[in-house]
Design a protein around this nucleic acid. Structure first.
Lengths: 338, 338
DNA sequence: TTGTACGCGTTATCAT
DNA sequence: ATGATAACGCGTACAA
């Protein structure tokens, strides 16, 4: 047959079948230059018949710009990187752009290795996703391709970092509790060395002060991102402050634990205590009883925005600094808010 | 400087700096052909100084074999694809192979699109990960590159599919319950139209028959993969068969729900009822109270095996059919087994 | 031991 | 409107 030795048909095969030169075939397929309508259809038919797929590698080699971007992540569960990836893929759309994913597992050595590998693959840009949104070392300044940090903040202010607006997100959560009549709001959250934890506390505190409310439950309960901690902390809160009428949790996972303790002690949600989580991690937020009102960080949108900025930067439009993207309140039954 | 117009230094730059031809530089860097020790070090130094990174695209173009494989997935949460990806990356090791990830989101159209895109990127092979391990349509026979289905079974017996051995895994779980003295074992699991569900029931049933035990809890409780279902099903089981002394759950998520009901009814785990889950999904299995004995599907190993088979197939060693890889029992406190 | 020349598949330029 | 030619960056026969 008209095929070459190793499988896939090439542009030359198509050209030969259509009885034209490779150059003309290229123009016809890409809609560039002047090609007679008749020849164009001949070429298109030939390509169709051979199931021709242009070799993206060769194309990139000549054009200089590759059709892939790199996604460098460190969250081994994919908790953040997958939504970001989906968002990026969405934004990339039919641009024929692919995503090269590398999981550095929080290891700096491996990370450097992957950066090199990705660059060797001629990625057009890099998105760096953190295992948390904490500040982290920049992967470097002069990388030949633009870099966007998504759900991660680079220590280098010359980099562009995209973060969810945890502060305002938390504020929305507490505002909501306030709007449904709660006045004794406690806060159970994760480790204090997470930027997200602190920002959420800030948003909470700001609102309480403006509303002239004290924090219930004696103090902010810092702990771990786990159901276990949620269960224990809820005990502490209830013991120290039986009048609490709402608990805002720093994550849905923690809220799931809180729910268990409330159920065990016969406390009704939301009648006795209203509950709001954070993350909209559906395996928790949709599965507690009752389902959880929570704050969605819009990670997909974050990923989409990252991809857009990457394109802008490739086009020369470089932006630096930290951008906070809005969160979204998802109201379910646990807050009695609907 | 010695740099070219658009950034990255090329082999020619290195050669020029070392005062040799590109061909010699290539040999020196790749350790091929005869190169004088002195020249080699000169070339290596030059490469070092320029931070030279060979262009993987150009390299693949000439050698014909690309340095990337494609991972086509459909599990939007990354629940299965991430472990498989990590395992594959491990097996790939320092082979300088990268993974191009595409999430088709269960959409056949999108899937076909991504297959084309990945092939256009000249991937050396494809790993297909399912959203469940159910049988699914093959992505095609003559794809020019080998394909391995991991945590998915192709309908085409000419394809190679890698699955966890759910049947034996379930058997191990129940054997364990039996070995710690339980004789009234109930089973709460997910939808019956999951192959995994049915295989686990088969393993359970086989062992019970061999051991001469009836199934407790009246019948296999099919439902959903959710805590909600676990909570409800546990009520049914306890109401229908108060003597149950063990519950084997088809997933850790379901087991988490079961735990909640048991706690609410004052049933002690494992003293009154021993509990075993399935998946070793740590956000559940490590977080229930007490932590869950469960079956780990070794998804990372599955991914590693998939990558190895892919290499074998690229080397011409094609295998077909379905392979079941062993699961691993993880013993924690919920079964009282240690 | 080293260098020259060519090809991988594609696109862009410039003749024709 | 079409085609020959060069170029992208690299590896590799083959010649020197």
């Amino acid at each position: 047959m008209g095929k070459r030795s190793s499988g896939a048909p090439t542009l030359s095969d198509v050209a030969a079948l259509a009885g034209v030169s490779p150059a003309t075939a290229s123009k016809a397929l890409n809609g560039r230059g002047e090609v007679a309508a008749a020849t164009r259809t001949r070429v298109l038919d030939a390509a169709e018949k051979l199931a021709f797929q242009p070799n993206a590698l060769a194309r990139s080699l000549v054009s200089g710009n590759s059709s892939t971007i790199g996604l460098l992540t460190s969250d081994s569960g994919g908790r953040f990187s997958i939504p970001v990836l989906l968002g990026a893929e969405n934004a990339l759309g039919d641009n024929q752009i692919s995503v090269l994913l590398a999981d550095a597992r929080g290891d700096v050595i491996r990370e450097r290795h992957y950066v090199r590998t990705l660059l060797a693959q001629q990625v057009a840009g890099l998105i760096v996703v953190g295992e948390s949104s904490n500040r982290r070392a920049s992967i470097g300044r002069d990388l030949a391709v633009p870099v966007v940090y998504a759900y991660a903040e680079s220590t280098d202010p010359q980099d562009l970092s995209l973060l969810p607006d945890d502060r305002v997100g938390a504020r929305m959560a507490v505002e909501h509790l306030h709007s449904v009549g709660r006045r004794k709001i406690a806060h159970i959250t994760g480790p204090v060395d997470y930027r997200a934890t602190r920002d959420r506390v800030t948003g909470l505190t700001e609102f309480l002060q403006e509303a002239g409310l004290p924090l219930a439950g004696r103090e902010v309960r810092y702990g771990e991102w786990s159901q276990r901690w949620g269960r224990h902390a809820a005990e502490f809160v209830l013991n120290d402050d039986p009048d609490v009428d709402a608990i805002f949790c720093g994550s849905d996972q923690v809220a799931a634990g809180v729910t268990e303790t409330l159920a065990a002690r016969g406390v009704r949600v939301p009648d006795d205590i209203a509950l709001v989580g954070f993350d909209n991690w559906e395996i928790f937020s949709s599965e507690t009883s009752p389902p959880l009102t929570t704050v969605d960080m819009n990670l997909q949108r974050l990923g989409a925005t990252a991809a857009q900025h990457l394109f802008a930067a490739i086009g020369g439009e470089k932006i630096t600094g930290v951008q906070h993207l809005p969160c979204r309140l998802v109201i379910r039954d646990s807050s009695g808010g609907r």
